[in-house]
């Protein structure tokens, strides 16, 4: 008897993944995998040259993304993905540099770097998976945890004020600020594709469940219940004032593209200033590379 084997159709995102590292560490119902799926679809849609794309993560569950994607990928220290990415981008401006990390990493221990990179408008694509908690270390309070939430370090409920991240990064100077949840997969993919076309500091906050440590401990159900919550309570308000998009425990989640503005990025400002002050004495580092026979950035006209 002959046996016919039918190869399963290849998943289009598979080529972006280090499948030799599977299974991953994320829990059932976790939203991080969904965000990676959206990210890889955005890479397809935006036709990103994968050889000139680097991804930098910090520490935490979301910090593990860099380890699972088949790209030039850096898993750095806790909170320091942004300054690492800043050095990488400035030393090699031809790279598209994505920072992919969590809320604790980017907004607590890395909070200073977050606001300064936004202020400088370094050309970085920051994707912040916000599960409202420190997940990898066991569910401690994060600066994003809303009030009245039980965590392992606030067993009687949180009471200190949480960060409204879109408001924070807009105030600091980001040129693009959006928020979606892991329910909004199409909008999220589109947003990620969009920031690849946007020079400067872009920030996408993705509200994502941690069924193991946030929802379960607060009797908010599992991953599916959280999807239902996101579906029912999310309200799309593009252009909403970021001062009005703060989160609470079970209330409305304002999603959408809040900020989309243009201002020169750090490198452009630097090059312009040096040209103005030094004239022809200024040597653009990218042009200097080209002279050494490494034609980096030539096709983008960075050497002109």
């Amino acid at each position: 008897m002959s046996v016919t084997t039918i190869a399963p159709p290849a998943n289009p995102v598979e080529r972006f993944l280090r499948t030799d590292r599977m299974p991953h560490i994320w829990c059932p119902g976790c939203g991080i995998g969904t965000t990676v799926n959206c990210f890889t679809r955005a890479l397809i849609d935006a036709k990103i040259d994968l050889d000139h794309l680097a991804i930098v993560s910090g520490i935490g569950c979301s910090g593990r993304v860099a380890g699972y994607v088949r790209l030039d990928s850096f898993h750095t220290t806790h909170g320091r993905a942004i300054p690492f990415a800043t050095g990488l981008k400035l030393a090699n401006p031809k790279l598209q540099v994505v920072v992919y990390s969590g809320d604790g990493d980017l907004a607590a221990i890395g909070g200073n770097h977050l606001i300064h990179a936004a202020r400088r408008n370094v050309d970085l694509k920051v994707i912040c998976v916000n599960n409202l908690i420190y997940a990898m270390t066991g569910g401690q309070t994060a600066p994003t945890t809303p009030g009245q939430v039980v965590t392992s370090t606030n067993p009687y409920g949180t009471f200190d004020t949480s960060f409204n991240l879109p408001h924070l990064v807009e105030a600091a100077g980001a040129v693009y600020v959006a928020r979606w949840t892991t329910y909004h997969v199409r909008q999220l993919s589109r947003a990620i594709a969009e920031i690849f076309q946007k020079p400067g500091f872009s920030f996408i906050e993705i509200i994502s469940p941690c069924p193991t440590l946030y929802q379960r401990r607060n009797k908010m159900g599992d991953g599916l219940d959280t999807m239902k919550y996101y579906k029912e309570k999310s309200k799309v308000k593009n252009g909403a004032p970021t001062s009005e998009v703060g989160l609470d425990k079970q209330g409305e989640i304002i999603v959408g593209k809040f900020v989309d503005r243009a201002r020169p990025d750090y490198r452009e400002l630097m090059v312009n200033q040096m040209h103005e002050s030094l004239g022809s004495r200024f040597i653009d580092p990218v042009a200097a590379e080209c002279e050494e026979g490494e034609p980096q950035g030539c096709e983008e006209g960075l050497c002109s």
């Binding site: 220290t77 320091r80 690492f84 800043t86 050095g87 990488l88 981008k89 400035l90 090699n92 300064h116």
Partner: peptide
């Protein structure tokens, strides 16, 4: 913004 940032930015630059 601080020495933490300076000491890791240089390493990003090296990998660049």
């Amino acid at each position: 913004e601080d020495e933490l940032a300076a000491s890791i930015a240089i390493q990003g630059a090296v990998w660049g």
